[in-house]
Write a protein that binds this DNA or RNA. Structure first.
Lengths: 235, 235
DNA sequence: CCAAAAGTGTTGCGGCTACACCCATGC
DNA sequence: GCATGGGTGTAGCCGCAACACTTTTGG
């Protein structure tokens, strides 16, 4: 029974903007397309939605197939529907952004999947409207991170305050006073100080922290105040 | 040339959650479906995307066709893609919310289009997942309005501070001290005080204000601080 | 012993909240 | 003249930004 028989049907793609942080630099995961059109051009992780799956399921499947990533933070961002955005056939793309602990997957991704982590400052030309998606993703992640503690998704389970601060400084492209930063972060009550130190970054070593998962989940929708002046979201 | 021939194609719908404010109550514009499935059930303003139009164009067209509304504030919200959300045939719905000055269209809508303004507190059961869309729209409008001056889109070009305050109180389902409210609002510099008064609401009358359009457009993306405590966004 | 990064406290200011009374007018 | 809603000011507190020195240790 098809009551909607006169209507047009369209391809639906999912495209994922995958953020990673290696302790110093904020990066995106990009891939060289192995198929036409635009073969060998750089592209986001994308694929078509299948008849049997929801949008979220498609996003998770595509991420897994192209990168091996599974169980990462994934959030729907925006749907792109210009009529000519894919030159072969009209395709509506539902975009997602993902936040990934880069270390967990670094080797796996490059050997098995020919995907590559590219510093956000040096993104090459991308196919279709993927450039636009990246710009929106940068804005979205800032917007959200200014209000919610999502950036922890980019860090390993144990991390130091200097690492966390570098991450915030990368995302907001700013520099933050470390005394005020640590006060604000610790005031959230989300962090548990561990007894051992990371000696990699300095001679003295920096204490490891981990998330208080209880509070993290409870406060995820709540508002935090880590960024001094949200006007830094502007550009 | 069809390189994607093996992929499934889907119906794409656009559904609009249309908010209006009559000076007292926040309302949604709903319609009784004139076609199957779910004929005569309440529904959001929706329709199918056509081959020749972008998502934004489809949203604007559908709003115009179903309500006569044109040139109103319209923002893409979220895409719903559960496989069984439309029982007849799988349909992905891209939802938009709209903010409308209710007075401009009140008569027109009910006479010409059989659409109806329903108080947000008394929304009937809706078809499909439209209930879920409404819930998300309430959250989205609060979220955005806590940070950006979008609620002016719901008011006529001349309005009073008590009207504006009632609007904020409706949206955030809270009550606000009027002295503090007026200080915060006026501190944004977005308002121009006019010399005449609205005598409808009281004997003394309340001064009309209008938006400083220069500043309004310049500050639309910037952050304002009208809501005392953003934790009111919680529920 | 020195370089390099980590850690930590205080003060002052600005902005926010809480709060109450007078004003204008239609009836 | 009184009831109704509109308009306005202040004081105290809290939170935030600004700011510099000491600690640790690998080399």
């Amino acid at each position: 029974m098809t009551k909607y028989s006169k209507q047009s049907r369209f391809l639906i793609a999912v495209d994922c903007i995958v953020f990673g942080f290696d302790g110093e630099t904020l990066k995106l995961l990009l891939i060289k397309r192995s198929f036409n059109p635009e073969k060998d051009k750089w592209s986001l992780m994308g694929g078509f939605v299948q008849a049997s799956e929801s949008l979220d399921q498609a996003a998770n499947r595509i991420l897994k197939q192209l990168t091996g990533l599974e169980g990462v933070y994934l959030e729907q961002m925006y749907s792109f529907g210009e009529t000519n955005r894919d030159p072969i056939e009209r395709t509506i793309s539902v975009s997602y952004f993902a936040l990934v602990d880069i270390h967990k997957y670094e080797k796996q991704i490059s050997t098995d999947f020919h995907a590559e982590w590219v510093p956000l400052k040096r993104i090459p030309k991308l196919i279709f409207d993927h450039q636009e998606m990246v710009e929106l993703a940068k804005k979205s992640i800032r917007y959200k991170a200014a209000l919610h503690p999502i950036l922890f998704e980019l860090l390993p389970s144990r991390f130091t305050l200097p690492q966390l601060q570098t991450l915030y400084e990368s995302v907001f492209n700013t520099s933050i006073d470390k005394r005020n930063f640590s006060k604000r972060v610790l005031a959230t009550g989300l962090l548990i100080k561990l007894t051992d130190k990371d000696k990699a970054g300095s001679k003295r070593g920096a204490y490891y922290y981990q998330l208080n998962m209880q509070k993290y989940y409870a406060n995820f929708q709540a508002f935090i105040n880590i960024i001094p002046n949200p006007d830094s979201l502007q550009n």
